[in-house]
Amino acid sequence: MMTPVLQVENLVKRYGDVEAVRGVSFSVEEGEVFGLLGPNGAGKTSTIEVLEGLRVADGGRATVCGLDPQKNPNELKNEIGATLQATSLPDKLRVSEAIRLFASFYKRTRNPDELLKRFGLEEKRHSFYNQLSGGQKQRLALAMALVNDPRVLFLDEPTAGLDPQVRREIYVIIEELKREKKTIVLTTHYIEEAEKLCDRVAIIDHGKLIASGTPRELKQRSGDTTRVEVRLAKPAAKEALSKLEGVADALEVDGAYVLHCQRTAPAIVSLVKYLEAQGNELVSLEIATPSLEDVFIELTGRRLRD
């Protein structure tokens, strides 16, 4: 078996009293797209920036391409590319100057002009950085992350704050990189992003890795069920709801009830009958196939995005 490109064992990161990462372990194989999925403050950025060598871990071990981020920072930096969550470039730096400048720092480089072309920044090449839109800045960040033809790519919330159309453009780019067999570690709190792009996903919450696997494996945890989410006029006992015909289990999440149903139609019929008997009313009803969100809800009793 090949050794993984990236190995994390029992990683711990603290900021004063805050334990941001509390013993996270995972590994990523060459060519894999690995997602860290979790809500705000889960510790995604802290984890990924330890791997990039930007932050120092307080415990555990991490190797990237066989290198220790703290002991061999320069070798490591030649092997990785990254987009950061909180970063910027000088306002008055032009797009083409930025990518050329960063290309000049590395031993191995890709043609900056080709990268700009590929990321649709050709006609913006003479623009100043502060004249770019959010999506253009993100595309420039991606182009710059590739300028050293890295073995491993770290993308920290690559689509945060972008509108849906731009987000889809970024997805296309990441899928292309995936076809090129780049190893990618990305963080996100968008379910569909994790499901769509990642070969494997680790769900992380409060600094702990609470589940990991392929999106399919993770979803199978909720069995072969359908998700029915209802809002009711009056509160109901979830124990009663979970005993209805066709329902596997019921959870209460933020005032709504999520029922996992083996058989959807009988479940809905029995639910309506039950509500009628209770003098309760249905405010809304939604049926969906289970997503990673359900996995998260099941594990934490909370939604991913609040």
């Binding site: 920072p73 910027s88 960063f102």
Partner: peptide, 16 residues
């Protein structure tokens, strides 16, 4: 400013 705006950390990702 470069430090406040996170420009330096972008440079730090490169072998500089």
């Amino acid at each position: 400013t470069w430090r406040e705006q996170g420009i330096l950390r972008r440079f730090r990702l490169a072998p500089i």
